[in-house]
Write a protein that binds this DNA or RNA. Structure first.
Lengths: 209, 209
DNA sequence: TGCTGTTCCACCCAAACAGGGGGAAATGTT
DNA sequence: AACATTTCCCCCTGTTTGGGTGGAACAGCA
């Protein structure tokens, strides 16, 4: 048995305090890392980061407080030495992609084992990227059928999902009703569906809303 | 310090093994209960129940294997002595209502503390119902605006959500297109929305799909 | 400079949707 | 038996949608 020189300093941001307590307990039982703090809101975490930065930040995607993706970008910019490991239930291509693009150093699903979590913490701490196998599969398979949308298309899609009609959307973004109708049809074609209802379902399933 | 006579036997069914391990660790550190087994699928749990029944079963709603609600009904029928405590992230009125109706003895959100969890385990073990305060609020506030749908309405709603048109649905359940159209309009009115897209969104948000 | 792609707008047209009306048969309740 | 409720069907109306086709303005790029 080797002597431990250093235990990685970990903070957790997740609104499910059950998971917070559970993960803390699991991590603290290990010899590689220990949890110095847990938060259930982004605000609390942001506050604490100003005082003190952990080595690794475990970050959920959906917080009551705001968006884990934006927060990830924020932390990566303000505290580049903090390694960010996304820990979430969301296995949608779009979310994983955006999270990694926002500067996350690893992405783990909550159905991973505690063992894998510890391995991931060590890996990102060492400066490696850690993508769990299941997530890597999703990234690969999603690569061919990823939905590339222009800004206007995203905007129109969002408003369609909110139940707005072509004339209403047209009024909102100062375009012709016919143009909006054209975008709607392009979206139907890109998502390979035949009506707006299916479009909305698919967009929601892919978490593009 | 009092002497402990008995520790409540707890099993956990949740597909997020991180939470499983975490909860196990939290519960086992307490003096009131201990975890005898954890499962990530309903099938595994069903198998184990035939051999041995715990005092309390912690049950998630969404399992990869099937529906936590149906499973709850099944366990309540086959093993009436097993107390079921729902532990989930879902805070929608419809789900809570159906879970309790299916025979759950308690309902806890995953953002509850470990302390509250232990209290809940003890409470349901004693034969009490445990509804966490946040959940009780939802049940109360949801009582007035609950959506009561007839069987046909539910059927039509489901097919609308799948993107089927009036003629298609009419063909499926052997009714006139006009009748389906009438049901659609009744749904719009019941959900207080003005088009099918909004209807689908609301139904999905309320987890009625 | 020409090429390619994106964005925007237009027109036709059939189908589907949404709002309003009325009405009949079956079922259940009292 | 009288009553309400549920379920089912039909009509009319205007709006919205979805499937085509076509074309102009503008960008980036070779």
């Amino acid at each position: 048995m080797t002597t431990i020189k250093y235990r990685i300093d970990v903070c957790i941001v997740d609104d499910h305090s059950m998971l917070n307590e559970g993960l803390t307990s699991v991590i603290n039982q290990s010899s590689e890392a220990h949890v110095s703090n847990t938060f259930t809101t982004l605000a609390a975490c942001r506050q604490a980061l100003m005082e003190r930065q952990p080595d690794v930040l475990l970050l959920d995607v959906s917080l009551p407080d705001g968006d884990g993706i934006d927060f990830c970008r924020e932390v990566a910019a303000d505290y580049p030495k903090v390694r960010i490991l996304a820990v979430t239930v969301h296995d949608e291509y779009s979310l994983i992609h955006r999270m990694l693009e926002a500067g996350a150093h690893g992405y783990l699903l909550k159905n991973s084992s505690g063992e894998e979590l510890l391995g991931a913490i060590v890996a990102v701490w060492k400066g490696q990227k850690y993508i769990s196998p299941a997530v890597a599969d999703i990234l690969d398979s999603g690569n061919d059928r990823k939905f590339v949308l222009t800004d206007v298309e995203k905007n129109v899609l969002k408003q369609i999902c909110d139940g707005l009609t072509n004339p209403e959307i047209a009024a909102n973004i100062h375009l012709s009703t016919e143009t909006i109708n054209w975008y709607r049809k392009r979206l139907l074609s890109k998502f390979n569906v035949k009506n707006s209802v299916s479009l909305v379902r698919k967009a929601m399933e892919e978490k593009l809303v």
